[in-house]
Design a binder for these strands. Structure first.
Lengths: 344, 344
DNA sequence: CTGAAAGCGCTTACAG
DNA sequence: CTGAAAGCGCTTACAG
């Protein structure tokens, strides 16, 4: 059993060179002679050498891994984003560490410790509701330029953020419903205090106003992105005396919950009301009726975030713009929205 | 700007003891005197000391992290399992590394390298379709006793596995439909070659046979756990001349796709056919109609897997049973299944 | 182009 | 109960 892995020493011995030379050959082949390169390659193969990452990390002060912080691991919204991140990281030899805000807090860990104890070289944060005290610590950390936000973000901070076109998506949504003849449009919001909720809600108000639509206060229904909140919002809609003919939900989960609850009360979508969401989850297409939604390319958001972070890790002292990136959205029109029937 | 973190040396200096003593105090407080303990604690606080994990890893040959391998990051099925794993790992100071089989292969990485380059102390593998060559390498690795499977597994290997009661779940499902009066029951399977597919399918055949039900070959429809396969299966069902009155799908995604496609063809669930799934995804409850399913407690599967792995990491040379654990399932009856109407 | 040597920050026998 | 010292496996100025 070759139970213990071989080390640089072993390779050096087999190749008949110093460990320094082996190290150089591996990390910077151009700098050594061709004959050395060949002998080292041969010795590496012979000894089945794998670099010890702990040793390299200790020496270079680089962990070669990145922390991705999710608000909640159990939310399927994030899975494609992780896929996108991993797609960019993995070929570069970087590992992806995952944690959730819940978990971090429950275990008494500190986020900044991921930097301080040399576990991670950078962070991609997908939680825009981080405790402000925590955010302050991150902002003042020496590693603050290796933190970026994706999807969500924190207002009044200088972290770059990769996000989708929230305003534009909302505008497209409202106009889609408008073009179908709807003049009374409701909005179910995300959680209070969330940046996405806020963006989408204010864009909704702007756009309905620009279109000269009536907007009663009770047509803006508080939600929180979840299925359950969608159900509650449907109850609110049902209770209205003057019911909007269309509803734009700030997330697909909201919209699905909304439709499910309507169905339980024998309302039909889109006959009684057109419903649309935001995100275009896989399931939107398979729901009954299929849900009209604003598609966010979550894979692309993940990839863009990883790419931006890697650039910052590679050149920590370069001046980087803090603009981040904005990923386009698109309308996916399906059967949950339809032409307004002429009034009964 | 205390830009560079403090080290054990710093703590030792402040506390007026040796680094050895600081190290001992931190890892094994009982072994030092109380006065030392107090002085060190004070010095740690004063210097805001965090252990450098790379250094510890190099010295102890422990990475203090665990790799979780998913077949595919974008599948929402896994998110709760990750939550469960993290819940157990995080308080113990272990980090969770995530990779997907796709990604690992695409980047030319080798799975075993996670051990060999000291990135991970153990693995939780959620992919029962790993390449057999890869599996062989893992089996023969010196670290093979720190690998466990969860949910899925590989037949004829000795890795322990944490899984749900697949047979029992299937039995419950078939009996639920039987009790509702159904005598012609179809099954949509998971992917060919998958252990779960196989377990559920053979249990389905056994149980229908035990109940003396007729089972035509075309009533067992090949699928692959996905929404899309569910749609195709529905087309197959529609094309049957003698249609089963109930369908047990090997996953919720299959069942949702199945129902969606039926709806497009103007069939109604459960009036025209009762449909049930396996998994009890969050969405099952919100679908229209709400989906009857066999609930797997994925949080618990994750926690159990993490617990089992940590025991093995803590005592690598102890004799561990390779039995794994079986997590109970339960029937969640909802509106997608109903009493068989007396024949038309 | 290459090697000798120092050192990254810990832990752990060993000795007292 | 505590300290001096070695060493985990790398990388990187420095010197040649």
């Amino acid at each position: 059993m070759g139970s213990k892995s071989s080390t640089l020493q072993d390779v050096a011995r087999v190749a008949g060179v110093s460990t320094a030379t082996v190290s150089r050959t591996l990390s910077n082949p151009d700098v050594v002679s061709e004959s050395t390169r060949i002998r080292v390659a041969q010795a590496v193969k012979e000894t089945d050498y794998r670099i010890n990452r702990a040793a390299r990390s200790l020496r270079t002060q680089r962990a070669h891994s990145v922390l991705v912080l999710l608000p909640n691991l159990a939310n399927p919204f994030f899975s494609s984003i992780l896929e996108g991140i991993s797609r960019h990281l993995s070929p570069k030899g970087y590992s992806m560490l995952i944690a959730s805000t819940n978990q971090v807090q429950a275990s008494g860990e500190r986020l900044i410790d991921y930097f301080e104890d040399a576990r991670a070289d950078g962070m991609i944060i997908l939680d825009g509701s981080l405790d402000s005290h925590l955010v302050e610590i991150l902002e003042n950390a020496p590693q603050s330029n290796r933190i970026i936000f994706a999807c969500e973000w924190i207002d009044n901070t200088s972290f770059p953020v990769v996000r989708c076109e929230n305003k534009q998506g909302t505008r497209i949504a409202v106009n889609h419903l408008y073009d179908l003849g709807h003049r009374k449009i409701a909005h179910v919001t995300g959680p209070d205090g969330n940046v996405l909720s806020h963006r989408r809600k204010s864009a909704f108000i702007e756009e309905t106003s620009a279109l000269n639509l009536d907007l009663k206060p009770e047509w803006v229904i508080d939600g929180d992105f979840s299925l359950a909140a969608g159900c509650q919002a449907a109850q609110r809609w049902i209770a209205l005396t003057d019911r909007p003919t269309a509803v734009f939900c700030a997330s697909d989960q909201l919209a699905l919950g909304f439709m499910a609850e309507l169905s339980r009360h024998n309302f039909t979508v889109p006959d009684d009301v057109s419903v649309m969401g935001f995100d275009d989850l896989d399931l939107a297409e398979q729901y009954i009726p299929p849900l009209t939604s604003i598609k966010q390319d979550r894979l692309m958001i993940g990839e863009a975030a990883a790419k931006m972070l890697m650039e910052r890790i590679a050149a920590p002292h370069a001046k980087h713009s803090n603009d981040g990136a904005v990923i386009p959205v698109s309308l996916i029109a399906r059967a949950s929205t339809a032409q307004l029937r002429s009034a009964a």
